[in-house]
Nucleic acid binder design. Structure first.
Lengths: 125, 125
DNA sequence: CTGTATCCGCGAGGATACTG
DNA sequence: CAGTATCCTCGCGGATACAG
């Protein structure tokens, strides 16, 4: 066990200790963003989520849900026995806004970013 | 070799293909943020950077610099022989703004985030 | 169905030696 | 000093079997 201090908690070294760590944890793990978005898309039970996130393994979904709950972005039966579904917390909803901002930022610079890669890769083959 | 397609390019699966991948790559790797910030703090040569980023290994700094250059956030001797120092690109400077926004976002919610963790951890020991 | 407990592969990050 | 080439470690993400 001891997973809840594992997944999403290499503690995003560069932000370690800082509050930003919890955000980076979500962004930087394999299924973090996908999972919060799945939860937002409709409060779901475990199996619905797993089907929604096609490809995620049983264990990894549990680990991810646990980490997201520990960081306060979702709530669900795993921590609160009264619940039957996973739901976004208010902070979780705000997190999605932040994620969307990052997406926008990237799309606004899509051209420049892509060009950088092309140039770099061209110089090297 | 083949590192430049390695470091920072597990291709941030959840954003794979999307332009946001390049941003997440920086955020999610051990030294990504620290390195762009070091480059901003003063255009430096390799060894100065390594001293500035105390603890980073030789190889990892090179890998990180290469990835940051590939993604267009910095430029330097590694890709451009005319340069002697590593410098931020315009997009790189904007990236730092984005990072600061994420920091602000987190600090604004610091209390709620910390409380979530405390509650979770308390419920489990 | 939901969560736990194991076992495993692979890749990022690190240590080190070698080359211009 | 800057960059390359190896080798190693450790932990995330995954597969699977088991338990309420």
């Amino acid at each position: 066990m001891e997973t809840y201090r594992n997944v999403m908690e290499s503690e995003a070294a560069r932000f370690s200790g800082s509050p930003a760590a919890q955000v980076i944890n979500v962004l930087s793990t394999r299924w973090g963003v996908l999972t919060v978005e799945a939860v937002r898309d409709g409060n779901m039970r475990f199996n619905e989520l797993q089907r929604h996130l096609c490809g995620i393994s049983h264990k990894v979904l549990i680990d991810t849900l646990r980490a997201l709950q520990r960081d306060g972005f979702i709530r669900g039966p795993l921590t609160d026995p009264r619940l039957t579904e996973y739901v976004l917390t208010p902070v979780g909803a705000e997190l999605i806004e932040l994620i969307n901002e990052i997406r926008r930022w990237s799309e606004d610079r899509q051209g420049r970013l892509a060009r950088a890669r092309d140039e770099f890769d061209r110089g090297r083959d």
